[in-house]
């Protein structure tokens, strides 16, 4: 009889409607349009803060990384050993992988740079180990390990978390953005427990990571008073108050004790 057909039809419609309704979340992924009337930095007056991060004491020995569960990477590490990057002390007793950034004192809101931060998974290891980025800045994740499945898991207390698998294929890339300032977001691979990295997410572009010479540079800062923080994954944080005038370049230094 008729009533049964209609009941059928209606139930079907409802399910279909349910199916359509779900598509919405995908549409909202348009890039955050924060660039309206973005304030500009006056190049003429911009100041710079540079410096070094020193290390005192004996550096702990960094262990060789074993990659027993991933045959491809295991073979590679047998040829070129990889060492943990937790504490790397350069020859001149400076400390690498320290994230130095402006913690307080910035008056202006600056638009996110278009410049892409590349984050690679190569030989079951993250490159780089520590990196800074601004909220909304593109974070391009690569997987250069062909045939190896990685998983990128960002562990966040804020809204920066993500967690997804990434099969290893030529030219594969996923671009993400971070949503809230957070120092630091831990990135790890759930498939390979030895893989770990840190991303410092800020709402401005004034950050730097110390390299093989232990130096950092915070360029094109508006003159003013700042709190500068240095963060290290093992030795914690240290802060300094710095005042810079127009066109001034100030040199500061941090020291971590082992």
């Amino acid at each position: 009889m008729k009533n049964s057909h209609l009941a059928l039809f209606v139930a079907a419609l409802l399910l279909i409607a349910a199916g359509c309704a779900k598509k919405e979340p995908e549409a909202e992924k348009a890039p955050a349009a924060e660039e309206v009337a973005a304030p500009k930095i006056d190049e003429a007056t911009a100041a710079t803060i540079t410096g070094k991060v020193h290390f005192e004491g004996t550096a702990p020995e960094m262990k060789k990384v074993e990659m027993p569960t991933e045959a491809v990477c295991h073979t590679k590490t047998q040829q070129e050993p990889v060492h943990t990057e937790t504490v790397i002390v350069n020859d001149d007793k400076t400390l690498r992988n320290v994230f130095v950034y402006v913690k307080e004192g910035l008056q202006q809101k600056l638009p996110a740079p278009k410049e892409v931060v590349v984050f690679d998974q190569r030989s079951c290891w993250y490159h780089p180990h520590v990196v800074g980025i601004q909220v909304g800045q593109p974070f391009k994740i690569l997987n250069s390990d062909v045939g190896v499945l990685h998983n990128i898991h960002a562990v966040s207390e804020k809204r920066n978390g993500f967690n997804f698998g990434m099969p290893g294929k030529e030219g594969i890339a996923v671009t993400r953005e971070f949503r809230a300032p957070e120092v630091m977001v831990r990135i790890k691979c759930d498939v390979h427990s030895w893989m770990g990295a840190y991303v410092g997410v800020l709402d401005h572009p004034y950050h730097s990571v110390t390299g093989p010479d232990g130096t950092f540079q915070l360029k094109t800062l508006p003159p003013g008073q700042y709190v500068i923080e240095a963060w290290h994954e093992r030795y914690g944080t240290a802060t300094q108050n710095v005042t810079v005038g127009p066109k001034e370049t100030k040199e500061i230094s941090f020291t971590f004790k082992g």
Binding site: N3, A7, V10, A11
Partner: peptide
């Protein structure tokens, strides 16, 4: 047919 209280219609709604 939709907010029916007839057990037959409800049964068919469930079934579908």
């Amino acid at each position: 047919y939709i907010f029916s209280t007839d057990h037959k219609v409800i049964g068919i709604q469930y079934y579908v």
